[in-house]
Nucleic acid binder design. Structure first.
Lengths: 184, 184
DNA sequence: CATTAATTTCTGTTTTGACAGAAACAAAAG
DNA sequence: CTTTTGTTTCTGTCAAAACAGAAATTAATG
């Protein structure tokens, strides 16, 4: 398939960004491609369009599937597997956040809990214990919050985001709290 | 400096996690070390403690400084540069979010805006234009929201996070919106 | 059951980034 | 101004990951 200049720019940039946070370029490009063309494609067509080896496409798709970012479909009269991705940006966001939390936050929480429970942890300096405790508490609050937020529909989510810092009006003692210009 | 087992575990894990989101192991380890010991250290001591080359420490610290995660200090009677990091987890979080947004979101917003403004963009298929538009809108809302949130004090922030999805009560039309069990 | 078509796994090559050690540089003290 | 001490830049080595192409496997059709 021939890509327009605009589609190319988008896909290349997406691949570039992908590698900036741990997902390899081809994986990110395939996802961008499926997002852009908005129709099911089979492995062969993806490989041709992006100029990468089919094996590469195969592995990348497996990875995308494991993250639930692309799903397998079929088109009538073609027995090849086809793949597509959701066009709902909010749903994609939810999936990505969920995955990153699992891979980046959860293991750290586990380690911090183990440390706190270790027999010799009590002997550590107070600052160290205190800092680890703060870190753990922080990650736990963050986890609960993100789990709850991600359970909401995109519509509610966008409303909350649009509220912005306005939510501070709803928490007691939150007045006069703006820190504009204190640290930059 | 001799590290306790607990401190070692923490630092090694932090380094491990670091490499999971694009920051190299040594950089993450140095940050973890400074966080754990909670006092200024000079380059030499850092290198000895972590068993890495001094040049490596030098470069890593430069990177951490550019992200405002460590700052330079001096201790009396010692002309060497010493380095320390904030013990305030919330402040660290704010700095990290800010940096990641700059490096991961801002460039994408710029590209999407350019695409939308390109002379031949109007000729693109409707779905494509629509999807890019959605993506841009999403990233813009997210940016505004995070900018505003990050301006709040840690105390307010923790209150809001603790509210969790409870914030939905404050947005109109948010009732009956829970999606539990719809997609997993 | 054989043949064809598609996908996945395997193996070797290439590229990229981390890192150590040396060399160059800068700053302070006597 | 020279010596000492600390910091940064540079260069080469090493390790890990991405990737292509071939081989093996699986599934479908006649």
């Amino acid at each position: 398939m021939e890509l327009s200049n605009n589609a190319q720019t988008f896909i290349l940039h997406w691949g570039e960004m992908g590698s900036r946070w741990g997902v390899n370029r081809t994986v990110a490009q395939i996802h961008a491609l499926l997002f852009a063309v908005a129709r099911p494609m089979h492995a062969e067509e993806i490989a041709e369009t992006l100029n990468v080896a089919r094996s590469n496409v195969s592995n990348s798709i497996k990875e995308l599937q494991s993250w639930q970012l692309v799903k397998l479909t079929h088109v009538l009269g073609d027995r090849r597997d086809h793949f597509e991705t959701s066009g709902d940006v909010w749903e994609l966001f939810r999936i990505i956040v969920k995955g990153r939390k699992q891979r980046e936050i959860d293991p750290t929480i586990a380690v911090l809990r183990e440390l706190r429970a270790a027999p010799d942890f009590g002997k550590e300096p107070e600052v160290f214990k205190h800092r680890l405790g703060d870190t753990l508490e922080f990650l736990e609050v963050l986890t609960i919050w993100s789990d709850e937020m991600m359970r909401l529909s995109p519509e509610t989510l966008v409303k909350i985001l649009r509220l912005g810092a306005g939510v501070q009006k709803f928490v007691r003692g939150g007045k006069g709290d703006d820190k504009s210009g204190d640290s930059s």
